[in-house]
Design a protein around this nucleic acid. Sequence first.
DNA 1: GCCAACGTTGGC
DNA 2: GCCAACGTTGGC
Length: 152
Amino acid sequence: MRYWLMKSEPADVSIDDLASFPNQTVDWYGVRNYQARNFMRDQMQVGDGVLFYHSNCDQPGIAGLAEVSTLAYPDRLQFIKDHKYYDPKATPETPRWFNVDVKLVRKTRLLSLKEMRENPALENLKILQRGNRLSITPVDPRDWQTIMALLA
DNA sequence: GCCAACGTTGGC
DNA sequence: GCCAACGTTGGC
């Protein structure tokens, strides 16, 4: 079992949106970065823990806990012409982009980016490192435990 | 809206 | 395979 941090723009899908969806589940569509895709396609297992992070918004930070609820499968938007996430080089026979489904475990208090930065125990968290832009990053089990304690 | 950091593209 | 140009991310 692994742990992940997954960024979502709340203007697109917020933690409250996730809570309102059928089965409180969302397909993690739109990832168009190979490293992030590979994490989903090659490493994620059903039941993996997910920190649901609000990015590119007024109050960036961890907004809830979730879990991986399916293995990766082809992202349906890559095939839709004129869609923002259309990829002309992808075909159903040779899809290029994949996503898992993510299911809400519980909404938490907002653990802000600032609070995480100020906590020395979290200094190795990928999201806090300079220049990090990856929308999906692995989380060390110790960092997961630290964050669970902060959110308890 | 700015801009640093980084990924991707494409000409050569 | 190099690398300049360009596009995107995302905090501030």
